[in-house]
Design a protein around this nucleic acid. Structure first.
Lengths: 181, 181
DNA sequence: CAAATCATGTAATGTGTTACATGATTCG
DNA sequence: CGAATCATGTAACACATTACATGATTTG
């Protein structure tokens, strides 16, 4: 259900097409959904049906028509009400931790290789995140408050991956001491 | 699909019933699934069909019969193979970050109240986690390696919530400077 | 010339949660 | 005496992902 509010939020900044929303959500890390057509276009139908957005068809030459969605007053009210809803705790889905739980069943060399690959994966992800944040930071924003919030959100995400990287590195450093042959 | 391997892993320690597995998974934070009957019992049917576990019905007086599942050799092989699979990156589903993204649309007093409630929620969660880890630490474990892995996993989870708590607190401290009225 | 971009949407499938159903026993 | 525990399972629904479908244009 939350993806509807994420879309509503994005539309509160500016009117967008389904295609635009799809890209924004698919490329984002905070908006953790896949951003599949199915999800986006169906959510927009729902939002439109509930009167939270209006739809304007914008024909184009040489390209399929765009459907531009604009948030309504009721939409803004719904968004504000949702923002003030007590937030759920973050959910950390961490498959590597589960694999590691049975790590004593494989030889420690293979385990270290696994962790090395994982460390590299996290490192690359962190770089991409920083790159993305740098691009984001260029986008101008209305108020100082909005800018501060944006940076705080990006910062939290970046910190998470930094901590993850530090954790794997320490893990690898200690691995042979505890599971070495 | 991963829940099958989580179950397989739990069965690699000792034979368990579906009910046991359900409790273990539902109470765990690392095994992030809800541990609903549907999921567990269906997964066990699949594992049994694929020959990765065997089933033994254990009748009881006064209580429904238990079905005890035991991992097979093929099951152990499958588990080991999966453990060495390149792990996916962790997925952080953080609704509070999304709500915060539109935080400039509400008054800063309400936003601080929101964050205060969230901070408290995180604090309680962290306490419960530490409590759970203390109980877990009592459970004896075969090898030093297994113990170390268990602590590393619990430590990562605890660190995540500690960082979250620190982050919210700093956020609240800075809130009035940037979004104050 | 193949692949990506633009732009919409549907279908099939997979995954996950809540609620329902049963029924004895034990605990507060 | 109501609620929780033990123990299995099914049904309905919600949520998500991948793949399919169309078709012109642009880029490598």
């Amino acid at each position: 259900m939350t993806i509807r509010y994420a879309i509503l939020g994005l539309l509160s900044r500016e009117p967008l097409s389904g295609y635009d929303l799809k890209k924004l959500i698919a490329d984002s890390d905070v908006f953790y959904w896949s951003g599949s057509n199915n999800q986006i276009y169906r959510a927009l139908v729902d939002l439109h049906r509930d009167g939270l957005v209006t739809q304007e068809v914008q024909p184009q030459e040489d390209r399929p028509a765009r459907k531009i969605y604009t948030i309504t007053g009721a939409g803004r009210d719904a968004l504000r009400a949702w923002v003030l809803t007590p937030p759920d705790l973050p959910q950390l889905r961490h498959p590597a931790l589960i694999q590691l739980a049975w790590g004593d069943q494989v030889e420690s060399g293979a385990l270290d290789a696994l962790l090395a690959a994982y460390e590299e994966e996290v490192r690359v992800k962190l770089l991409m995140l920083q790159e993305g944040a740098r691009r984001e930071a260029q986008v101008p924003v209305r108020t100082g408050c909005a800018r501060w919030l944006r940076d705080a959100i990006a910062g939290r995400l970046r910190a998470f991956y930094e901590h993850e990287l530090a954790w794997v590195r320490e893990l690898r450093a200690e691995l042979t001491d505890f599971c070495g042959e």
